Amino acid sequence: MAQQAPKFSLNHMVCPRWTPAQLIETAAEMGVGAVELRNDVGENSILDLEAASAAGHRAKELGIEVLSINALYPFNIWNEERAAKAQELARLVDAAGGRGLVLCPLVDADHSASAETRRTGLEQALTELDAILGRYGLQGFVEPLGFPISSLRTKAEAVEAIRSLGLESRFGLVHDTFHHQGAGESAFFADMTGLVHISGLEDPDIGFEEMLDAHRFLVGERDRLDNVGQLRRLLADGYDGYVSFEPFAEPVHALADPVAALRESMDFVRIGLAR
């Protein structure tokens, strides 16, 4: 039976000023079952085994699942540096007791590789990552980024590559509601989706191909991305994983009471899905 209500998670981007322990403790306080840690939130980043182990220990104490560390970038430009970084991050995810590693593609206006070259690079990266993640029993969460200058914009392209290599058991998609709209993608791949990220666009003067991370707020009544509609479709199609809040807008990060804002956004999504 299709899931009727979302399971929420907190990505550390909800409040980068929190320590990993504070993020985990807030999730427990809110009755949220999981968190996503990050390696790009300044002094609160997970960058070494001590920090990863401490976060994992606190999560286990409170019964909170660590979904991922976010992220390996740019995962689809494979070289010795990327291989070393992937090894390092896999060890950190493992130390934190995490489920997997988020994989983000190159976003660069000067990247002029052909479609064939991009596909070859993607397949090489997936093959190499299969071996690295496999050593720790981890998943790879491939997150296509819908920006016009992204080297991997659509979920369809990622799915095609994963399936062509027979790596469906290792890799799943991140369905990011912001990037789904940014790419102009209509296809949903609930069966291939391992994680969902949600955020809202409110500015009425910004087009979907112009929006940037700084425009990503919590989901509310002014949302233009149809987060509720996207979630309704994913849940109806059988997605039963976590829905993780991932706002990047500075006004969200500066909120005096982020917990109240998160509760309000959760209520908005729940009520919308119940209609």
Score class of each variant (00 low, 15 high):
Glu160Arg: 13
Glu116Asp: 15
Phe141Ala: 00
Thr177Asn: 06
Lys85Arg: 14
Arg135Leu: 11
Leu138Ser: 05
Arg82Val: 11
Ser164Tyr: 09
Thr127Cys: 00
Leu72Ser: 06
Ala183Asp: 06
Ala187Arg: 13
Leu103Gly: 05
Pro148His: 03
Ile132Arg: 07
Leu129Thr: 08
Ala86Cys: 05
Ser199Pro: 01
Arg99Ser: 03
Ala131Trp: 10
Ala113Tyr: 12
Pro74Val: 11
Ser169Lys: 15
Gln87Ser: 03
Ala83Lys: 13
Arg135Asn: 08
Asp94Met: 00
Arg99Tyr: 05
Gly100Asn: 06
Arg91His: 11
His179Leu: 03
Pro74Cys: 02
Gly184His: 10
Arg99Met: 09
His180Asn: 02
Gln139Phe: 14
Glu81Leu: 05
Leu138Gln: 08
Glu185Pro: 03
Gly200Asn: 03
Trp78His: 02
Pro105Thr: 13
Pro105Leu: 08
Leu138Trp: 10
Glu202Arg: 14
Asp203Asn: 15
Val107Thr: 14
Ala109Thr: 13
Val196Glu: 03
Val142His: 02
Asn79Thr: 09
Gly166Ile: 11
Glu123Val: 06
Ser169Arg: 14
Leu201His: 10
Leu145Ile: 15
Glu210Phe: 01
Gln124Trp: 08
Cys104Asp: 13
Arg135Thr: 07
His111Ser: 14
Lys85Asp: 14
Leu126Thr: 10
Ala125Gly: 09
Leu173Phe: 04
Ala71Val: 12
Ala96Val: 12
Arg163Tyr: 09
Thr177Gln: 00
Asp176Asn: 11
Arg82Trp: 00
Gly121Glu: 15
Arg82Glu: 05
Phe188Arg: 07
Ser150Lys: 11
Glu128Trp: 02
Ile77Leu: 13
Ala125Phe: 11
His180Ser: 00
Glu210His: 04
Gly121Pro: 00
Gly137Ala: 04
Asn79Phe: 07
Leu92Lys: 09
Ile132Thr: 14
Ala187Trp: 01
Glu81Tyr: 06
Ile162Phe: 07
Phe141Met: 11
Ala113Ile: 05
Phe147Asn: 04
Leu129Asn: 06
Ala158Val: 12
Glu80Val: 01
Asn70Asp: 14
Arg163Asn: 14
Lys155Phe: 06
Phe141Glu: 03
Phe188Cys: 01
Gln87Phe: 02
Phe178Ala: 02
Ile206Trp: 08
Ser112Lys: 15
Ile77Lys: 11
Arg163Ile: 05
Val102Ala: 01
Ala95His: 07
Ala156His: 03
Leu138Met: 09
Asp203Ser: 07
Leu72His: 09
Ala131Met: 08
Leu173Asp: 06
Gly184Cys: 05
His111Asp: 15
Phe178Asn: 04
Glu80Thr: 04
Ala109Tyr: 12
Pro105Ala: 04
Pro105Arg: 11
Ala190Thr: 12
Gly200Val: 04
His111Glu: 15
Asp191Phe: 01
Val102Glu: 03
Leu165Lys: 07
Ala71Lys: 04
Lys155His: 14
Glu157Arg: 08
Arg119Gly: 00
Glu81Thr: 12
Phe75Glu: 08
Val159Phe: 00
His111Gly: 00
Pro144Glu: 03
Ala71Phe: 14
